[in-house]
Design a binder for these strands. Sequence first.
DNA 1: TATTGTTATACTCTATAACTATA
DNA 2: TATAGTTATAGAGTATAACAATA
Lengths: 155, 155
Amino acid sequence: MPSDPSLLRELLPRLTELSSSLNRGRLVERALEASGLALERPAITILGVLHLAGEPLRVGEIAHRMKVVGPHVTRQVHGLESRGLVQRIADPADQRARLIQLTADGTAAIERYFGVVEGWFTDALSGWSAEDRRALGALLTRFTEDLTARLSTLD
Amino acid sequence: MPSDPSLLRELLPRLTELSSSLNRGRLVERALEASGLALERPAITILGVLHLAGEPLRVGEIAHRMKVVGPHVTRQVHGLESRGLVQRIADPADQRARLIQLTADGTAAIERYFGVVEGWFTDALSGWSAEDRRALGALLTRFTEDLTARLSTLD
DNA sequence: TATTGTTATACTCTATAACTATA
DNA sequence: TATAGTTATAGAGTATAACAATA
């Protein structure tokens, strides 16, 4: 029962535009530049996942959270390791696995990056009421969850 | 004056997740499959832009709306033309330009595709009140506009 | 035999540079 | 000389396949 088809007609282009701004609008590239980081997009995403987790994660777990496959993470982690931003440590529970851990430099890098992006978001929302901000956060969270759930049933 | 830093801390991962679901979560690929279309992602995006415009567009205008460069559109249009989904017609106002026009098959294809995606969105929002749907649409529109405006000032 | 990760390779998406045709 | 589009090439991001090591 699509109670408001016109809303859906509107929502789709908006999401496309938002996604476009976030992905190809060079938000990530600009933020990396502003943070003084010479990293590629997947690399900073890995740092973000590790920072959000607050603990070392396996390669497979990082891949799962990024919705990508293992080999992609492996390659990016090598680059991050050579730059001294992450360390690979043995998983005491399983000798096959490797735990990826942020170094002090890695933690500083991702916090600098997040600070830049959050500054821009704060600017963008500067004209918003506290209530509207809260509402956006809540609705977006719920929408993401419901959409993700619906898509997962397609498998 | 970031009135609610924790909201921003929350918003960012949500947007990343949403973007991930839309872009790499294979939503487009699945919808193409469900619509019986053997097209690539940029190709269906071009059909969507043309459908939304409701009139033939120049290559450069399509590129502008997709936020990509011209050569990318040229190549995709060739594929669409060979599949009979668009036509290239001369622009009567300028002999250098080409107008890209949806064929009947192309119109049918993009409408089938949108129908599938909208069905999924409708499912995802089935538990939502009309008020919440309206609020999401309005807030998302405003957010996209404000964020796009903020990012454009970085140039 | 199943799982974790790595190496090697290939495909998709998009950009830059050089060029053609028309304005 | 500037603009619309095309052709050719290159690079970033991600996937699949084959393999190694451990469980």
